[in-house]
Amino acid sequence: MHARTEAASDTASDNPNSWPDDIFDILRRFDVRQVPYVPDAGHSQLIERVLGASSMRGIPLTTEEEGVALLAGAWAGGQRGVLLMQSSGVGNCINMLSLTQIFRFPFLTLVTMRGEWGEFNPWQVPMGSSTAAVFELSGIKVLRASHPPEVREVVEAGAGQAYNACTPTAVLLSQRLIGAKVFTK
């Protein structure tokens, strides 16, 4: 995995890099127990927090659709979960997203965006450009956070509508938020 540049610091916040901790606190407050993920540099800080938490189980996947099915099973068994992935993984999930409508379970996914805002790698652009539309066509509500200070309220709203109203929700974390990946110095 490659590191990203520091998150944008032109926005008002005490610490612009603390938004992953904000997300972790929200997940803990909503009693999220299973956290399947395909790694992304933008999620690395949150994944570390999850793997270090006794109340959560971080579950690495071989492909993102596994996570949708896992969360359906977790719900059947009485636990909440959240799927962490990057935008290129969303296309891998499409058929499995049927489960969110079939089971009407509280599906929440947090998606780090690629293929936008200063992207270097053109191969990320097609899927990044269709990520929101793919979710919407699949019946998933889409929210987006682009600046560090808004992450908390956007993720809180997403978790609230997913877990309280069984409204399947994807929160897109903009590339502007996490910083474009740097390939050359």
């Binding site: 579950i59 099915a69 896992l70 359906a72 099973g73 059947a76 068994g77 009485g78 058929n95 049927s98």
Partner: peptide, 22 residues
Amino acid sequence: NLYLWGAMGGAVMIGLGLALAQ
């Protein structure tokens, strides 16, 4: 019984989510 009529390829993962929860 959790019967699947779709979601091909997902049975083992649904079982894993259940097994970890219970």
